[in-house]
């Protein structure tokens, strides 16, 4: 969705959902994501709708991604690092979608 005014010097490579993405040192993970064709970073926990980074200054919490195994990190505040593993976050399984063990006891 965004393009760079210059090609980055000393580019680093991170993985987003397993695909390599080139980024400039100093880029935030969210910036690296937005330089790809797909700005979506996660599904909203409430409805599951796709969301993308919105404020880029750490205020809106739309850019939450799993970074190096840690979920819910603010991708707009985390700088890229060579080899970083980034994942888009799926909507958490809602409560009630799974039968409750207590229900089974009762029935």
């Amino acid at each position: 969705m965004f393009r760079r005014l210059h090609e980055p010097a000393n580019a680093v490579t991170i993985q987003i959902d397993g695909s390599p993405v080139r980024a400039a040192p100093g880029d935030s993970v969210a910036a690296a994501l937005l330089a790809t064709g797909n700005p979506v970073c996660r599904q909203s926990p409430a409805s599951g709708a796709d969301r993308a980074p919105f404020c880029m200054i750490g205020a809106c919490f739309e850019c939450l991604m799993e970074i190096d195994g840690v979920p819910n990190r603010q991708a707009c505040l985390v700088p890229v690092r060579e080899g970083m593993q980034v994942r888009r976050q799926a909507r958490p399984t809602p409560v009630g979608a799974v039968a409750s063990p207590a229900d089974k006891v009762a029935s």
């Binding site: 926990p45 409430a46 819910n72 958490p92 399984t93 809602p94 409560v95 009630g96 979608a97 799974v98 409750s100 063990p101 207590a102």
Partner: peptide
């Protein structure tokens, strides 16, 4: 906490 995947009932 924020919304978590369903893991607990009692």
């Amino acid at each position: 906490s924020g919304r978590m995947p369903h893991f607990l009932d009692p």
